[in-house]
């Protein structure tokens, strides 16, 4: 069964997404700003398993009304690619990155790892600056 047929046949999450859409397909790349690109993670689970879920776990499901979401099989049986982009101003790309990462971790491991708390009891002035950076880190990066 090819990828498109799989998507059509899929229920749950799969039925709610558009697969292999033109915006993320293998077409020639038009000029687009970084902010226009879809954010993506690959979940190391088969496409059928992910697209067949009743709902994606974690915060991604909570954002569903405000994002466009696509699922497609990763090449070489390397799992399922999940792509998302905000469709209104109610969701930031930072929030969406966090949601994608957490959803991937929840599907793969059943949990989201936490650092020890408190990481330190007396971070000092430079440490507090670093805390601001670290606080934003989960929503930044190259997704």
């Amino acid at each position: 069964m090819n990828a498109v047929k799989k998507a059509v046949a899929a229920t749950g999450v799969g039925a709610a997404v558009v697969l292999g859409g033109r915006a993320v397909g293998r077409r020639r790349e038009a000029h687009r700003d970084r902010s226009e690109h879809w954010l993506a993670v690959t979940i190391d689970r088969p496409f059928d398993a992910v697209s067949g879920l009743e709902a994606l776990p974690g915060p991604l499901e909570e954002l569903r009304a405000h994002v466009d979401l696509r699922l497609r099989p990763a090449p070489g049986d390397r799992g399922t690619e999940v792509l998302a982009v905000p469709k209104d101003d109610d969701v930031s790309r930072e929030d969406l990155r966090v949601a994608l990462r957490k959803t991937k971790s929840l599907i793969e491991t059943g949990t989201v790892i936490q650092p020890d708390t408190p990481p330190t009891t007396h971070p000092g002035p430079l440490g507090r600056v670093l805390r601001l950076v670290v606080g934003k880190s989960a929503g930044e990066g190259r997704l």
């Binding site: 934003k136 930044e140 990066g141």
Partner: peptide, 13 residues
Amino acid sequence: CDNTNTNPGITQA
């Protein structure tokens, strides 16, 4: 490992 760095943005950058 994909799931154990709690601050991925720093090293991704």
